[in-house]
Design a protein around this nucleic acid. Structure first.
Lengths: 210, 210
DNA sequence: GTCTATAGTCGGATAGAC
DNA sequence: GTCTATCCGACTATAGAC
C-alpha cells in the first residue's frame, strides 16, 4: 500500500483541505477510487494516516524507551535511584534520538503533520499524543526529576522537561527561521550532530545546577 | 476594516485552503465582494494578512528591541561591552516579552499563522521573518555571545540562542501537548508568569556556565 | 461601496463495466 | 480491485443594478 506514506507527506505539507485526493492519486500512482474503497473516504484516510505515523515514530523510539524504562525499573527493584550521571546519560539518549528523528530532513513530513495537529487538534492528535508523546514525556520527566533532585510530578520539573524538548523541537518547528538564521540549507547528518552536541550541553547545564 | 483580524484568525486556524472566503465574510460581517475589491482576491488578502501580523507583533516588540539596541550602542560608544549581569537581564526581558506575547491565549492566532508559514513557507514568511524575527534574533544573539564570552556570530552562540527561543516557543508550538502535560486548561496570566520564571532560570544557567 | 445573481472551476464520491 | 465517466456540491470571482 503506497497510499499512506504519500498521504502523510501531502497532509503534512498542505493540510487536510489543501490536500486534494487527486494529488494523492497521482503521487501514489493509484486509482482515485482506492481512497473511498480502502479508507471510507478522505476523512478516514486522514485518521489512518495518523495511526500510520504513530507506527512509524514508535518504530524509532519504542526500543529506546523500553530500555530506559527497564533500567529504571531494574534500579527500583534494587531499591536504588539512578545517579545524576546516569540520569543525564539516559536523558541525553532521549534528546539525541529526538534530534535524529525530528530534526533530520527524512522526518520532516512527520513533523509537519504533527505540528498541524498541535495547532488545530483533531482526533488524530489524541492517537499520537497517547501513543508517542505522553510515554516519552513521562520517562523524560522522571529523569529530569532525578537530575534536579525534585519530585518528577512537580510543575517545575515538568516545565524544565518541556523546555528541553523545546530546545530540540525548535529546530523542526521553526524550521524556516532556523535555516535562515543558521545559514543552513537543510538538516542533514552534520546538522543533526551539532544539535545533539547542543543537547549534551543543555543536559550538562541542568546537571551542574546542583 | 474588520477583515484583516478575522482573516488572520481564520488563516491561522484552517490554513489557506481550509479558509473559505465565505467564512471571512460571515465572521467579519462584510460583503463577499469586499475581498476581491480591497485586496485583489483571496491570495492578496493572505499577503495583506501577513503584513498586518507583522504590524501587530512589531507593535509589541519594537519598543523593547529599540531600548536594548540603544543601550548596546550607548555602551559601544563608550568603548564598553555590557557586563554578563546586564546582558542576562536584557536577554531576560526579551524572553519574558516573548513569553507574554507568544504564550498568552491572546496571540494564539498569530502563532498559528506563523507556524503554518514555518512548515510550508510562502511569500508571507519573508515578510515576517525580515521584519520581526531576524532583528530579534540578531539582538538576542549579541546578548548570548556576551554572556558566554564568545563571538556572537559563531555557530555555537546562534545554537544556544535558538535553544532558548525553543524553550519559550514550545509552550505555544506544542500547545496541545503542553496543555495535556501540564494539566493546564489554557494559558492565562498565571501560566505566563510560570514560564517567565522558567526563562529567568534558563538564563541563570547560561550565565553560571562560565 | 454594497447587493444579487451567476459564471466558471474544481474536488469528492459514485456507478457500472471489466 | 481497478478504470472511465459522470454527478453533485461548493467555492472564487465577476457582472451589473442600486
Amino acid at each position: 500500500m503506497k497510499i499512506l506514506p504519500v498521504a502523510l507527506d501531502m497532509f503534512g505539507r498542505y493540510g487536510f483541505d489543501g490536500t486534494k485526493t487527486r494529488m494523492i492519486r497521482d503521487a501514489a500512482g493509484v486509482n482515485l477510487q482506492a481512497i473511498p474503497y480502502h479508507f471510507g473516504g478522505k476523512e478516514g484516510l486522514y485518521l489512518a494516516t495518523a495511526e500510520y505515523l504513530g507506527d512509524r515514530i514508535d518504530a524509532h523510539v519504542a526500543e529506546l524507551r523500553g530500555q530506559i524504562r527497564g533500567r529504571l525499573e531494574q534500579l527500583a527493584a534494587e531499591g536504588l535511584a539512578p545517579s545524576r550521571e546516569e540520569a543525564g546519560m539516559l536523558l541525553g539518549s532521549i534528546l539525541k534520538k529526538m534530534a535524529a528523528v525530528f530534526v533530520s530532513d527524512e522526518s520532516a513530513p512527520w513533523a509537519r503533520f504533527l505540528l498541524r495537529e498541535q495547532m488545530e487538534p483533531t482526533a488524530a492528535f489524541q492517537i499520537i499524543y497517547g501513543r508517542v508523546m505522553k510515554p516519552m514525556l513521562e520517562v523524560g520527566t522522571r529523569l529530569v526529576g532525578t537530575m534536579l533532585g525534585e519530585d518528577p510530578a512537580s510543575e517545575h520539573v515538568r516545565l524544565r522537561m518541556l523546555a528541553l524538548i523545546g530546545s530540540m523541537l525548535v529546530f523542526r518547528m521553526a524550521n524556516a527561521a532556523v535555516m535562515a538564521q543558521m545559514q543552513w540549507s537543510g538538516a542533514g547528518p552534520a546538522e543533526v550532530e551539532r544539535i545533539q552536541a547542543l543537547a549534551e550541553e543543555l543536559i550538562a547545564d541542568l546537571g551542574a545546577k546542583r
